[in-house]
Amino acid sequence: MNSGNRKSENLKFRTRAIHVGNEPDPASGAVIPPVHFASTFRQPGAGEWGEFDYSRSGNPTRAALERSLASLEGGCGGLAFSSGMAAIHCVTMLLESGDHIVAGCDLYGGAYRLFHKICSRAGISVSLVDMTDAEAVEAAMRPETRLVWAETIGNPLFTIPDLTEIAEIAHRRDALIGVDNTFGSPVLVRPLEFGIDIVMHSATKYLGGHSDCLGGTLATHDKGLLDRLYYVQNATGAVLDPMTCFLVSRGLKTLDVRVREQSRSAMELAVWLQQHSRVRRVLYPGLPEHPGHETAARQFGGLFGAMLCFEVDGSFEQTKRVCNATELFGLAVSLGAVESLIEQPASMSHASYDAADRARFGISDGLIRLSIGLEDVDDLRADLEQALGKIG
């Protein structure tokens, strides 16, 4: 668990991503800090504790990453976990039997499964609601609601909640509010600035950025809340290993450049797909027609992210055929890396949804999700064109 360096507050985002938590090694002068693989640390005396004692409780390499994260999110501290789901699970372990969660209906399939299939075993209930509808969120709140959970960009339908509005609703009812900012990344939006209590990332995605690591993070602006989350993490042990901490720290150094370039390509492809004869609709918050466009423009500061969905004019099998036909777009779950990916949510990332809920919340069989990488946008457009031609 580590907090941000106050001396860095006046530095710009990209500069902090490179320098905070990546200070030169004082012992050797190496410009890249060493990776500390030690599982345990020698103490000054019996009953006397140094800064680190056992790597589950704290590790210098993990502490450096957590310092970087806290700086980029504008929080008092951060925590690094073995996966994004481990991070969300840690938040839910603040709850007790009989408590209630209000979550967005446009929700990552893994979070849906955790809330409905795991938290339910502990007597914790969940209600799914449209997070863009303040009245619906208010109506879903109960006396026993202790957590509101949303996504800055809904997965996979790209709903954009008003963060300030839903934070105020949660706080009026004495509930915590956490958001998954994986699709957005701190380049687009820093939810703590909007009154959110906890911001979560699957570090596997944009933070790492190269499809070579698995991790998750939490950050908060409240020291007491940070201490509670750290206690759960230390007690349960889902910490991020030193090598992966190094890989995520390395990814953060190019995060700003990558997300900006990927967002530009996504915007160009979204506009092109809108005009395609085989495409029924395009879901991308950068399009003026998107119902969350104005909210996204206000909260994201001019960028709209590198994720988009489109619905093909075809059957379930024809949709699968398109996904199977791409050459540059890799057919895979996950997102946020330098290579572009394609998937069918109904059969892949959101297959854990009950079929009735997929239908109720609009996750259609014809929906295709794209993660736009750093390839030349002309090559990506050509790949989609030939794949869409396979609909027949």
Score class of each variant (00 low, 15 high):
residue 178 G to N: 07
residue 154 G to P: 05
residue 173 R to G: 06
residue 176 L to K: 13
residue 164 T to K: 15
residue 165 E to M: 12
residue 166 I to Y: 00
residue 152 T to F: 03
residue 169 I to S: 01
residue 168 E to L: 12
residue 156 P to M: 02
residue 170 A to G: 10
residue 176 L to A: 09
residue 155 N to M: 13
residue 172 R to N: 13
residue 156 P to C: 07
residue 161 P to F: 01
residue 140 A to P: 09
residue 153 I to P: 02
residue 138 E to Y: 01
residue 150 A to T: 14
residue 179 V to F: 02
residue 167 A to L: 03
residue 156 P to R: 08
residue 152 T to Y: 08
residue 147 L to P: 07
residue 142 R to C: 04
residue 159 T to L: 06
residue 149 W to R: 10
residue 167 A to R: 09
residue 160 I to Y: 02
residue 149 W to N: 11
residue 137 V to Q: 03
residue 140 A to C: 05
residue 137 V to E: 00
residue 177 I to R: 05
residue 177 I to L: 07
residue 165 E to I: 09
residue 154 G to T: 04
residue 166 I to W: 04
residue 171 H to C: 09
residue 143 P to F: 11
residue 164 T to N: 15
residue 172 R to I: 09
residue 140 A to Q: 06
residue 167 A to W: 01
residue 173 R to L: 04
residue 159 T to W: 07
residue 171 H to G: 13
residue 154 G to C: 07
residue 166 I to E: 06
residue 153 I to K: 02
residue 167 A to H: 05
residue 167 A to Y: 00
residue 161 P to G: 08
residue 155 N to R: 14
residue 175 A to C: 13
residue 149 W to D: 07
residue 138 E to H: 10
residue 154 G to D: 00
residue 146 R to T: 01
residue 139 A to I: 10
residue 144 E to Q: 14
residue 143 P to N: 05
residue 155 N to Q: 14
residue 140 A to N: 07
residue 138 E to K: 12
residue 145 T to H: 02
residue 171 H to N: 12
residue 139 A to S: 12
residue 174 D to I: 11
residue 165 E to Q: 14
residue 164 T to A: 15
residue 164 T to H: 14
residue 145 T to I: 00
residue 159 T to Y: 01
residue 150 A to Y: 02
residue 142 R to A: 04
residue 165 E to F: 05
residue 160 I to G: 00
residue 163 L to W: 01
residue 166 I to A: 04
residue 142 R to T: 13
residue 138 E to L: 10
residue 147 L to A: 05
residue 170 A to R: 04
residue 169 I to H: 00
residue 166 I to K: 06
residue 177 I to H: 03
residue 146 R to E: 05
residue 148 V to R: 03
residue 139 A to D: 12
